[in-house]
Write a protein that binds this DNA or RNA. Sequence first.
DNA 1: CATCCATTTTAATCTTGTTTTAAGATGAGA
DNA 2: TCTCATCTTAAAACAAGATTAAAATGGATG
Lengths: 225, 225
Amino acid sequence: MLKIGIAEDDPKIAALLKSALEENDYQVLTVANGIDALDLFSSESFNLLIIDVMMPGLNGIQLCKHLRENTVQTPILMLTAMGTIDDKVTGLEAGADDYLVKPFHLKELLARTAALLRRQPPIEAKTDHKFYFDDLVLDTYSKEVSRGGKIIELSAKEFVLLELFMRNPNRLLSRQFIAEQAWDISFETGTNVIDVYINFLRKKIEKDFERKLIHTKINMGYILK
Amino acid sequence: MLKIGIAEDDPKIAALLKSALEENDYQVLTVANGIDALDLFSSESFNLLIIDVMMPGLNGIQLCKHLRENTVQTPILMLTAMGTIDDKVTGLEAGADDYLVKPFHLKELLARTAALLRRQPPIEAKTDHKFYFDDLVLDTYSKEVSRGGKIIELSAKEFVLLELFMRNPNRLLSRQFIAEQAWDISFETGTNVIDVYINFLRKKIEKDFERKLIHTKINMGYILK
DNA sequence: CATCCATTTTAATCTTGTTTTAAGATGAGA
DNA sequence: TCTCATCTTAAAACAAGATTAAAATGGATG
């Protein structure tokens, strides 16, 4: 069952929303202020959050920002008071996915709710943006890498580095180039991070496999081939 | 400074994007319809184009196609309305590099913008990184050399030296010139590195083959012919 | 705020191969 | 034949990269 969290300080509106949504077979939890909302929405996982902009303590915008900063990805529907047109911009900027101006018809709320929930599985639709090389697959959306069908766990930096190679197959990449692209350093530092990370990558993507993919060209750089 | 062009007919969204991007130190130019966009994007050069699909006159897909036909290679980020999932496919087919479904988080826009800008044109792969002489091929992209289809492994210095010859076929290269170009030494040192490396090269690229390619001109230098 | 854990970076060592030096051999031209 | 430039080879000097461990960093958690 799909689970919806509501942050709304007006008890009448909160009750109205709750009953309307429950009638449509959603499971609903409500909180009456921003602080409680932050606690609840951060600790439990929801399919959708409905947040009122005007709340005592922590308002909807601030709440929204905090949640996004805590990497909460749940779709957020923002409820704004009429007249505050700029709330739309601010709300979206803070990380909301849609907004609704009060007063609204319950019908519209239900429609938008359904739309947002329907939009959740677009992760499946995002099957593009994959790079293939030999039996290695790198997906820039899910940030997943696999070789021969077997998922390989990479850290952020490891992923960025491998992505660079996958975007430039059969091209020799100098350390200088790699440093600029993956580490944003253009000057000469005495570091050997790149070597270390090449080593990390090799351990993860080559160790248990037959073919080597990342080759060293001494005094030149590395090449994926 | 990196320059971004935006084609968006909704002035509010356009302003929002502009200010967000400018805050991140991009230079931004906006146009409000497809026709103007085609004019501007064709005449001035940008590092990235952000194009809304829905626009009066010329829509984003058409604009994208026209630009690509005019050999504009700039990365394009397409903005599509919610729900029109197929726009994604159409957009990418028309030549866009990425797409973003409205409404979106500014954070995500900025992330994708950065990603697209970081990505350098892999189109480079197609053009002239290859030098040919007789049956010898030198590829500056992969740093590979082959003769008669057979791969030849060269060290960095050997490669640089051969590249010098391949860039100057049928030209007599003095030791002085070679020293300056390949070793960055302009003064007279008592070294014989060049002779030694010519010998290394000959062993690798001539030993197993019929025709000699590097010829000695006593008291003058060497020539590839 | 203190602690934990994973990630990222630095540093040091070891191995390997490249680059350079040096010196004797070869060969071309006078 | 003699001389000098070039070729060849081997060894020395050097630097690059692999690898490992340890230190620093940065979130997450209580």
